[in-house]
């Protein structure tokens, strides 16, 4: 494997996870937050593919990535369902409205 490739992929992984976390912190809509979560997971998927490639077992890396996609979809569905309820109950998707529980 080309060394540069590995580094590039690693940078992409870190970039995706970083952007995802950044989104979680600054976003003003729950939908965007869920997108941020998705971004992070996509980065992780890439990391697994990379790990599989480096350790010489592409198949395993990819099958793990597939499993993660399935699980992540479930989480996303639950999160979206909650977002819908938040919109109905709070009248907004802004996470800054979700501050009734504090101190």
């Amino acid at each position: 494997m080309d060394y540069l490739d590995g580094v590039t992929i690693l940078l992409v992984v870190l970039g995706l996870v970083g952007i995802g976390i950044y989104t979680l912190m600054i976003s003003r809509s729950l939908i965007k937050i869920i997108i941020g979560m998705q971004l992070m997971v996509k980065g992780v998927l890439l990391a697994f593919v990379l790990a599989g490639r480096i350790s010489g077992n592409m198949g395993l890396g990819q099958s793990l990535a597939l499993t993660i996609i399935v699980v992540d979809t479930i989480v996303a569905v639950v999160a979206l369902a909650m977002a819908v309820r938040v919109r109905r109950r709070f009248g907004t998707l802004d996470p800054r409205a979700l501050t009734t529980l504090r101190r």
Binding site: L30, M37, V44, F48, G52, G61, M82, V86, P95, L98
Partner: peptide, 28 residues
């Protein structure tokens, strides 16, 4: 209840991603 659920979910998701990153590093 909703608010707690959302916070719990998002923070857990972050944790989950960190764990997965760690697993991929270890596996590498």
């Amino acid at each position: 209840s909703l608010e707690a659920g959302v916070k719990y979910l998002v923070q857990s998701a972050v944790g989950s991603v960190l764990i997965l990153l760690a697993i991929s590093i270890t596996y590498t």
